[in-house]
């Protein structure tokens, strides 16, 4: 089912949680709502589900206006950040809940419910836990049970609020992959909320970046990463070095191979892997020395210190990233003066 949000606004007192949001999500996508905490992403999710009413704007599902429709009639599966499993029910009863509360005419028989619940338990690979209570499960298990419960009513849209937020790192990695595969299998339009850009890039087919209740950019992960629409997106998605254009920067940026063609541009954003370094530069063309480096596994991250003319002002460290082989070939030691070669930069006003 496609989702169309038009002109959605929501205020909590004086705080504008959502500010005229327009968003279209085509059927079958797996979309990440990405943004810092407090940017309104969870509120947006709750408005789609009908758990929150917008102050203005419409929510359309498959072209039908559902703004006034009660949450219980929207047919939207919602997985809560802390799972919200019914603590007084077993895993089986939790998953069966959505089927058992259907109106008498639509309600499947108990045998049918039993079959369906076990199918779902197999789908999330936890059939052996069917008679446990939620407080006997681990975080990852609860997450998957919450997902199975939401899927039981065959929702046309699946919404997940910070689905991996409360899990430890190793479980999170597994579940990301698993959610991607599950989405491939079921192909139900899904939206998940996250503040972790890596997670958004890894799992989603579409990323929507939110900040201060507004949409900054929407696009595929590679579009977002390679063509950030503005300085916020560039900084929030992936690591980036920010250079403000005072005079000094201009000189060495030109030496580094960056052509400044937009007279209005004021800052340059450069990804660490777009910076290459060379040894033995003279002090007039480059203010950088090697400060430290870290082994990231597949690559080396180099920290470069910059000398600043003004006294007492500490310039931010510049990060460059390169393959292990390249770093070995350079044979650098701490304190060596280096020149930068910038392959690509994004310019913002």
């Amino acid at each position: 089912m496609s989702i169309l949000l038009s002109n959605i606004s929501k205020n909590f007192g004086d705080f504008a949680a959502l500010d005229h949001i327009d968003l279209e999500i085509p059927e079958g996508e797996l979309v990440a709502l990405l943004g810092p905490s407090g940017c309104g992403k969870t509120t947006l999710l709750r408005i789609i589900a009908g758990l929150e009413q917008p102050d203005s704007g419409r929510v359309l599902l498959s072209g039908e206006d559902k703004t006034e429709q009660h949450a219980s009639h929207r047919g939207i599966g919602f997985v809560f950040q802390h799972y919200a499993l019914f603590r007084h029910m077993t895993v089986f009863d939790n998953i069966a809940f959505g089927l058992r509360v259907k109106p008498r005419k639509e309600r499947p028989g108990e045998a049918m419910i039993r079959r369906k619940v076990h199918e779902l338990l197999q789908l999330v690979q936890l059939d052996w836990l069917h008679d446990r209570y939620p407080d006997q499960l681990s975080g990852g298990q609860r997450q998957r049970i919450a997902l199975a419960r939401a899927l039981a009513v065959e929702p046309s849209v699946l919404l997940l609020d910070e689905p991996f937020g409360a899990l430890d790192a190793s479980v999170r990695k597994d579940l990301r992959q698993w959610l991607r595969n599950l989405h491939h299998e079921l192909n139900v339009t899904s939206i998940f909320v996250t503040h972790d850009q890596e997670e958004a890039m890894e799992v989603a087919s579409q990323v929507v970046v939110l900040n201060h209740g507004r949409i900054e950019q929407q696009g595929s992960p590679s579009e977002i990463y390679d063509h950030p629409a503005n300085a916020f997106v560039s900084k929030f998605v992936g690591q980036t070095n920010v250079f403000h254009l005072d005079n000094e920067d201009k000189i060495w940026l030109q030496h580094a191979g960056i052509v400044l063609d937009d007279p209005e541009a004021l800052t340059a954003h450069v990804r660490p892997h777009d910076i290459d370094i060379e040894k033995n530069a003279d002090a007039s063309s480059s203010p950088f020395t090697l400060k430290d480096w870290q082994h990231l596994g597949s690559a080396i991250r180099v920290e470069l210190a910059r000398e600043v003319r003004e006294q007492g002002k500490l310039a931010p460290v510049v990060y460059a990233q390169m393959p292990n082989e390249r770093f070995k070939a350079l044979q650098l030691a701490k304190g060596d003066r280096v020149a930068l070669r910038i392959r690509h930069a994004h310019w913002f006003n």
Binding site: A71, G77, A84, F86, F97, V101, R149
Partner: peptide, 25 residues
Amino acid sequence: SEEEEAALSLGAGGWKTFFLITLPN
């Protein structure tokens, strides 16, 4: 109210949510 909201999103109306989720808790 998360459990109640979960019940709502699963299609339970107000009364069913109260008797099946809130009251037992």
